[in-house]
């Protein structure tokens, strides 16, 4: 086991964790923003897949990294807008609609892949563009930290930054305030003149933007090709990460870090004599466990709040004639 431990405590491992968590942070933030707005978007998997595909294709046919980036982002936003249209205008159940979007993305990318390249597996026949790696001048010379933090793909840094951007967007901008208001109580938001549908549509489009960046990283950074269904459940693990992080930027980041570490661990353990099937299972088992633990915690907290509220009610005011208006208000807000 000791060579394994050695490799886990090496800076390579830290580097690998950041690499693996990049395609989780983006979609996790993408999910968080929709959950905050009350329109749970579970089609991140499909959004990532579409953007990963169109990024590679546009990049290969135009030779321009910028156009590839734009195409990927546009397709992601378009997916979000489409889901918004189905849900908000056509009254599709958002879960079923998103399942259909995922299915569409999986089929459509393979379909076009075949039509464009004659291959149904991957775009290995195309010359794919890759986003550049960034070596940060001062940081890279710091012994261990430099090895871990420097030399990553530009999108990895974008992922770390996007958690901060997400924070400002949600807590410091009018749109963020509206998103939170709409998610907490759409009727109340409507009553103060917020256009609920529009805010939810924006949230879905932003979600598409985040998902697109995750997808672009997968096919033009993590690897340099598009392969069918290459997201391999990352869009779903990301949802678990966002849920685990309470849809907040720091929590989501930490949850993505956790899943990233487990994933990287699974790659490293491969050198040990354990059947590969069991190793590949680890991230998914970890997700189920984390999901359960998180749910237990939330439930306990909720119970505690309830108990405290009851105690407070009991302590304050004479029990014979509680002020009816106040009692009503408390009931409504809990």
């Amino acid at each position: 086991m000791s060579p394994l431990l050695d490799s886990i405590f090496s800076s390579d491992f830290g580097f690998a964790v950041l690499r693996v968590m990049t395609p989780l942070i983006f979609p996790a933030l993408g999910f968080a923003i929709t959950d905050l707005a009350g329109v749970v978007n579970i089609s991140l998997e499909g959004m990532m897949l579409m953007s990963a595909f169109f990024g590679v294709i546009v990049g290969a046919f135009t030779g321009s990294l910028l156009l590839a980036l734009l195409a990927g982002i546009l397709i992601g936003i378009a997916m979000g807008a489409a889901l918004g249209y189905f849900h908000l205008k056509l009254k599709t159940d958002i879960i079923l609609g998103a399942i259909a979007m995922n299915m569409f993305a999986s089929g459509f990318t393979i379909f076009l892949l075949y039509v464009l390249t004659g291959d149904k597996g991957s775009t290995s026949s195309l010359k794919s563009l890759v986003f550049p790696e960034v070596h940060i001048p001062l940081l890279r010379s710091i012994p261990v930290l430099g090895d871990i933090l420097s030399g990553h793909n530009v999108l990895t840094y974008a992922a770390l930054l996007s958690a901060i951007v997400f924070f400002f967007l949600i807590f410091k901008t009018p749109l963020g305030l509206r998103i939170r208001a709409v998610g907490q109580n759409p009727d109340a938001a409507r009553s103060v003149g917020i256009n609920v549908d529009r805010v939810q549509l924006y949230a879905l489009m932003l979600s598409g933007l985040f998902g697109a960046l995750g997808g672009l990283y997968l096919s033009m950074g993590y690897v340099s090709w598009f392969a069918r269904d290459m997201t391999a459940g990352r869009g779903w693990i990301a949802i678990a990460a966002a849920t685990l992080g309470g849809n907040m930027p720091l929590g989501t980041f930490l949850a993505a870090l956790l899943f990233g570490s487990v994933n990287a661990l699974a790659i490293y353990i491969a050198s040990v004599n354990i059947p590969s099937e069991l190793i590949q299972m680890i991230p998914y088992v970890a997700t189920v466990l984390a999901l359960a633990l998180y749910a237990i915690r939330v439930q306990k907290r909720r119970q505690k709040i309830k108990e405290e509220a009851l105690e407070e009610e009991y302590d304050s005011g004479p029990p014979d004639n509680p002020p009816p208006a106040a009692a009503k208000q408390r009931g409504g807000s809990s």
Binding site: F86, A100, F108
Partner: peptide, 9 residues
């Protein structure tokens, strides 16, 4: 697969 998705939507 594409058609299935369209029908579901």
């Amino acid at each position: 697969t594409v058609i299935q998705a369209v029908i579901i939507i």
